[in-house]
Computed example of a mutant assay.
Amino acid sequence: MTDPDGPKDAIGGYASPPCLAHEIGPAYFEPLAVDQQQATNVARWRKAERARLLAQRSALPVAVRHEASEAVAEQLDRLLTARYGSIDGLTISAWWPIKAELNLRHWLEGVAARGARVTLPVVVTPAAPLVFRFWMPGCRMVQGFWKIPVPADGPEMVPDVTLAPVVGWDDAGFRLGYGGGYFDRTLAVLRPRPFVIGVGLQVARIPTIFPQPHDIAMDAIVTETGSQTGSGA
């Protein structure tokens, strides 16, 4: 997904890319929902863990990340076939890769050729839910917020399946993202709620993300080694 954070890096500022963004804003935790000291401690831990995992991922050779992307694409096909039988007619949202994320654009071209409708997340208003705009190979792209390419036009759609890139993930299906809360905000209001798949590397598995009241578990987690059901299913 070009670096979505513009001039900011992975551990500074509040700017957040549409694929799960960047740093926790001061109003992100609901004051009455969680102990403030706990929230502060968790935010501090997540910031450090996020930096560690991003550095670990960036250090992987490009060939290793490419092989992982190909393996994830196969795992996604298996999971979606098992759940839906056919992807023809499904609306699937994904992402434009950034920060050494797995690159699934080739897979997206393939599912579009098989009859799926593909969308990409777009930030229309900062710190608000994302919208999902129709994408197809060769469509006109423009630079969106944080310099991420997004479809220039086309209808906004509610996805049946949403892929969310993960920086880290745990066995309960919770994901550590970039920290801006965009996907949590979006999933909280999307109706009907899509089937949500966190996608990342097996090495990014951690014991827990210390989930807070605002965190929403994925329905499944897919890595290059396989898939598992999350607690959101």
Rank of each mutant, 00 (worst) to 15 (best):
M136A: 13
G198K: 05
I87N: 02
W169P: 03
G144P: 11
P7N: 07
W135S: 07
G13A: 09
S227H: 13
F174H: 11
I216S: 00
F183P: 02
T40R: 14
G180Y: 00
V142E: 08
K8Y: 12
L120K: 03
L20M: 10
R105K: 13
S86R: 13
G168H: 04
L79K: 09
F174R: 00
P149Y: 02
G13M: 10
D35T: 04
L90E: 05
R78H: 13
D184H: 06
V123S: 07
V222R: 02
W169S: 03
L108I: 08
A113I: 05
L120S: 04
D9T: 14
W96T: 12
P194F: 09
A127S: 13
T91D: 03
L108S: 05
K47F: 01
W45Y: 11
A172M: 11
E156Y: 11
P31M: 03
S227I: 02
D215V: 00
K99S: 06
V150N: 06
V62L: 10
A21E: 05
D153S: 14
I92H: 04
P4I: 05
D3N: 15
F134T: 12
L60N: 07
Y84V: 07
P207F: 00
A172Q: 15
D5E: 06
A94F: 02
D153I: 06
A233P: 12
L53T: 08
A71I: 10
P26N: 00
L53M: 12
A152Q: 15
R185M: 08
A33I: 04
L120Y: 00
K8Q: 10
E49M: 12
R185Y: 06
R205D: 01
E156C: 10
E74G: 15
F174W: 09
L187C: 09
G173E: 03
V111C: 07
G115F: 08
V161G: 04
P17V: 01
G144N: 05
A71S: 13
G181D: 01
D171T: 13
V64Q: 15
A152P: 14
Q37K: 15
H214W: 11
V167F: 00
P97Q: 05
A48P: 01
G6D: 08
M141L: 06
A82S: 12
G85Y: 05
E74N: 10
G200Y: 01
L201C: 07
V62Y: 07
N41G: 13
Q36W: 04
F210S: 00
D219N: 12
P194E: 04
V72K: 04
K8D: 10
T125W: 00
Q228F: 03
M1E: 06
L201K: 06
L108N: 05
Q228N: 09
H22V: 07
L201H: 10
D184M: 01
R205P: 09
P18G: 12
P7E: 05
W135R: 06
A51T: 13
G198H: 04
Q36T: 11
D77R: 14
R65H: 10
V189K: 07
H106S: 14
P207W: 00
V64G: 08
